[in-house]
Design a binder for these strands. Structure first.
Lengths: 132, 132
DNA sequence: TAATATGGGACCAGCAAGGTCCTATATGCT
DNA sequence: AGCATATAGGACCTTGCTGGTCCCATATTA
């Protein structure tokens, strides 16, 4: 299925929320979750993923939370997807992790589909948080 | 996850195989499956879906099977995906079947993402079997 | 030192994807 | 007529991922 996971959807809402917050201010995962009716525990997990990829900066302790780490025009849709869902592989053949697909010797669609994948990736990389 | 299902992948191999077969000839699902090392029972199911959408024509009985129903340049990647996976919805919000998402009132990403969906759909509709 | 924040692992239920099996029906061949 | 072989289609099973929760460690502030 070609669909963004709910996790990614939530992540986009959150990071977009941070993009609209006062500069420098930290917002807690709980606050963001409440604002968008997202399960708080899940939101916390997603923020961690975004933080690990350097899309948002985090701060421990009371008054802590998250704030955006780059300019919204420097964060692409692709960045968020990759941070939450991992690298995109349009077909399993192109997945470097799980290799050896049984159809490989006679696979006639692999190469053209990888071209399609590049075109879709270009769309996602061309869409920044600013565009939302 | 943004990935074509294996079913769709198989379907593409099959219909591309039919596109290269002698005009008018029927190939059985079992033949196609053997050629590409695809489970025969599964291949049969996928061919049924392609047939129901009118992408391939079917013939019962001995010497029966499937053949392509249109010119390869008239069959898009999108056609095959839709035939096998059903209509594409980039995010759940845009799915007409399962409506009422709890984030709806405060959802800030729905509209821009539907634009992204359109752009991706355009890529898939712009890629025909001929291009493979 | 209590309260509150993130970091991160373990865990769970539900569902869809991948795949099999069985039966009914249509067609060609002997 | 009757058998072999093809599609049509429903029921079913298993496995892995998705969405989501819980718990504990660590960091920071009041």
């Amino acid at each position: 299925m070609i669909r963004l996971s709910k996790r990614t959807d939530y992540g986009l809402m959150a990071i977009r929320h941070l993009a609209g917050a006062p500069v420098g201010a930290f917002l807690s995962a709980r606050e963001i979750a409440a604002e968008h009716r997202i399960p708080p525990a899940l939101m916390a997990k997603l923020m961690q993923k975004l933080a690990r990829k350097g899309l948002v900066a985090s701060q421990h302790g009371t008054k802590g939370g998250y704030r955006i780490a780059r300019d919204p025009s420097e964060i692409t849709l692709w960045d968020v997807i990759e941070a939450i869902e991992g690298p995109l592989c349009f077909i399993e053949c192109l997945d470097p992790i799980k290799g050896n697909c049984p159809q490989y010797p006679t696979c006639t669609v692999q190469k053209p589909l990888s071209a399609v994948q590049r075109r879709i990736a270009a769309v996602l990389e061309g869409t920044t948080l600013f565009d939302l």
